[in-house]
Amino acid sequence: MTWTPDQPIVSIHNVKKAFGSLEVLKGVSMDIMKGEVICIIGPSGSGKSTLIRCINALNDIQGGSITVEGQEVHDDNLDRLELRKKVGMVFQQYNLFPHKTALENVMMAPVKVLKQNKAEVETRARELLRKVRLEGKENSYPGELSGGQQQRVAIARSLAMSPDVMLFDEVTAALDPETVKEVLVTIKDLAAEGMTCILVTHEMGFAREVADHIYFTDKGVIVEHGPPETFFDNAQDPRTKEFLSQIL
């Protein structure tokens, strides 16, 4: 039962999820290995956000199973603290804490939740902010930062918990085209360092460049998946072809 790195770090098996009578996920399965970068693409409302929110138990599921490092997520006895230490998440709307500076945003969870030494956390937080190229913005409040800068603080904030897996839900969708790039560069750096990343994105060029595997979802099912080259140049399913023709 103990997890070893040769097994999938995140394993999703036949997951079913409904909001009331609305079936959003109708049996989704995927396996993600440690260090892999996978992109989930698909039309609006196809259940992409719902799926990745299930991975860190922000949503519950009605059927199937999700394991993270061998630990079943949808178990009543789940240790949520353990799960959320392993899985970081970045949202489309950044969701920084507006009453805290950039540095405090990054430091808060390790200090308050993990009870780590404040001075050590601060050193690490400054390093993380440097890594997301925000040196000099440590003492700015979220309201004083651009969307792209806020999103990079949000990434640093998640990284401060030293997660093993990062979830990104359309993290560039609220940004203007110039600032999209700076956030994508940050994610690319992370991927290059071997972080396991699960991304929902509409940035096809980016997906093609960084992803090891692409999943296309529509109406709660995975229609097609494969490595980027085959997926983008040789899509089989008519729904995938139609989606790609609209977006590319």
Binding site: L58, G88, F97, A109
Partner: peptide, 15 residues
């Protein structure tokens, strides 16, 4: 969304 962001950072409800 503030609750969710905190939740995803392992904060408890009370925290």
């Amino acid at each position: 969304a503030q609750w969710e962001a905190a939740e995803s950072l392992a904060f408890t409800r009370r925290q």
